[in-house]
Simulated scan of single mutants.
Amino acid sequence: MRKTIYQYVYSHNDEILNEWIELIRKEADERAIQTMSDRMFVKTCAEFVELVISNFSESVEAFHDRAIEFSEKIVRLGWPLTMMTDGLRLFGQIVEEGMKKEGNIDHNSYVDFASEINNWIFPMYKTITQAYTTSWERTVSLQKIALQELTAPFIPIFDKISVMPLIGTIDTERAKQIMENLLEGVVSHRAEVVLIDITGVPVVDTMVAHHIIQAAEAVRLVGAKCTIVGIRPEIAQTIVNLGINLEDVTTTSTLKKGVEQALTLTSRKIVEVQE
């Protein structure tokens, strides 16, 4: 029976692919399909069907390597794991219906067919799922590292004056990254004044305020001055209600005012030039 299935799949490769594409279009998440051109979608589907068929003739190790390579590709394309697992189910369904139509399997031989197709298809579920999960975890890890590098950029805006814009929620892990980037930036750029801009921080609670104050104190310890800018009215009210002490920290409501203060601290000012 295995040889019969093998011969049917290889002799009906194009028919199986076309039917598989039509079925997966109906069942797959539209968002995954819409992320690529129709040509890319068909090409990727063809690669998947080829991957499944290759398990007939390749060793376990070779199939595993191909599964990892394909999984990395579809993770980048944004395909969910269900498109692969559903794809395996649909592939077995297409082969079964096609072989029934051609009389390759009947009531008497169906048990042998079901056993053989299961022995072929089900091990692929595990291999493909593991390969996809590994690729997904690796991608998420790399994205996390990239986000951490961008989470607290240290930006020189004038000689001796730099700004660090903070956007989003600040937790303990991110606060550590902010502190490292801040101190490294002060030293490497020889900054005398640093503006920590919290305009993009949606919520300032006791923990967030504590992290920001710690960052400001750390800047002073390495010989620079620190100003916290972007203190919006609602944040100011929250700080007062929480009883957070910012007496030892210079603050301003906007980045513009912070820059003006920083220029004054470095004995400079912006002068309008008359034409």
Rank of each mutant, 00 (worst) to 15 (best):
A32E: 11
N108Y: 07
E96T: 09
V140P: 00
V163G: 07
N108G: 09
A114N: 01
R220K: 15
N108F: 08
R232C: 09
V60F: 06
K144C: 11
E19S: 06
Q7F: 03
E27I: 13
I5M: 15
I170P: 08
V186Y: 04
N13R: 14
F122V: 12
I170H: 05
G243T: 14
V193M: 08
V271M: 09
K100V: 10
K3M: 12
S54N: 13
I231S: 01
I128D: 01
V193F: 09
G243K: 10
Y10A: 00
Q148Y: 04
Y125A: 00
A209V: 12
E116Y: 00
I157T: 10
E116D: 08
K73T: 14
T172K: 07
Y8F: 15
E137R: 11
G185W: 06
F158W: 12
G185Y: 06
K126L: 02
I196D: 12
I5F: 14
E72F: 06
D14R: 14
F154D: 09
S59L: 05
T4E: 15
T227W: 03
G103K: 12
A236K: 11
A209R: 09
M83G: 01
I121Y: 00
R76A: 13
N241S: 15
D65F: 02
Q214S: 07
V204G: 07
P165S: 09
Q34W: 05
V194I: 15
V240E: 04
P80M: 12
E69L: 04
L166N: 06
T199F: 14
W79E: 10
G103I: 04
A62I: 07
G168V: 10
M83E: 13
E61G: 00
S188V: 03
P123I: 00
F154W: 04
E58H: 01
V219T: 13
S267W: 07
S109K: 07
I24S: 05
V163N: 07
I235D: 11
